[in-house]
Simulated assay, not measured.
Amino acid sequence: MSEVLEREGVEERAESIRMIRESAAGIAPRGGDRKRIRALRFKEPGFDPAVLRQMGEQGWIGLRVPESRGGAGLGMSEFCALAEEMGAALAPEPLIPAALSAALLAAPGAASGAEGPLDALLGGDQLVLTAWQEAAGMLEASGTADAARVFIPQAGGAQAFLVPVREGGRLSLRLQPREGADLTLEKTQDGAFYGTLRPAGGEVIAEDVGGALELALDEAALATAACLLGVMDQAFALTLDYLRTRQQFGKPIGSFQALQHRAADLKVQLALSRASVEAAAALLDGGADRAARRAAVSRAKARASDAAMLVTRQAIQLHGGIGYTDEADIGLYLRKTMVLANQFGPSALHRRRFAAEAREDEA
Rank of each mutant, 00 (worst) to 15 (best):
A110D: 01
A111Y: 05
G113K: 10
G113A: 14
A114D: 12
A114Y: 04
E115H: 09
G116W: 04
L118F: 12
D119M: 14
A120P: 01
G123P: 12
D125Y: 11
L127Q: 06
V128I: 13
L129W: 00
L129M: 04
L129F: 00
A131D: 01
A131W: 09
Q133C: 12
L139S: 08
E140G: 11
E140M: 11
S142T: 08
S142Q: 12
S142I: 06
G143D: 01
T144Q: 15
D146L: 09
V150T: 14
F151T: 04
P153W: 01
P153N: 11
G156A: 14
G156R: 06
Q159F: 04
A160D: 08
F161R: 12
L162G: 04
V163T: 07
P164E: 11
P164M: 08
P164T: 02
P164K: 06
R166K: 14
R166S: 02
R166F: 00
G168I: 02
G169T: 00
R170F: 00
R170G: 00
S172G: 15
E179Y: 08
E179V: 07
A181I: 08
A181W: 06
D182K: 14
D182N: 13
D182M: 09
L183I: 09
L185E: 01
L185V: 11
E186Y: 12
K187F: 00
K187H: 06
T188L: 10
T188H: 04
G191E: 00
F193Q: 05
F193E: 03
Y194F: 14
G195T: 07
G195C: 03
T196Q: 09
R198T: 12
P199D: 09
P199M: 09
V204H: 03
E207C: 00
E207R: 13
G210H: 01
G211E: 14
G211P: 05
L213G: 12
E214A: 10
A216Q: 11
A220E: 08
A221I: 02
A221Q: 01
T224V: 09
A226W: 15
C227K: 15
C227Y: 13
G230V: 05
V231N: 10
V231Y: 03
M232P: 15
F236A: 15
F236E: 14
T239V: 14
D241C: 11
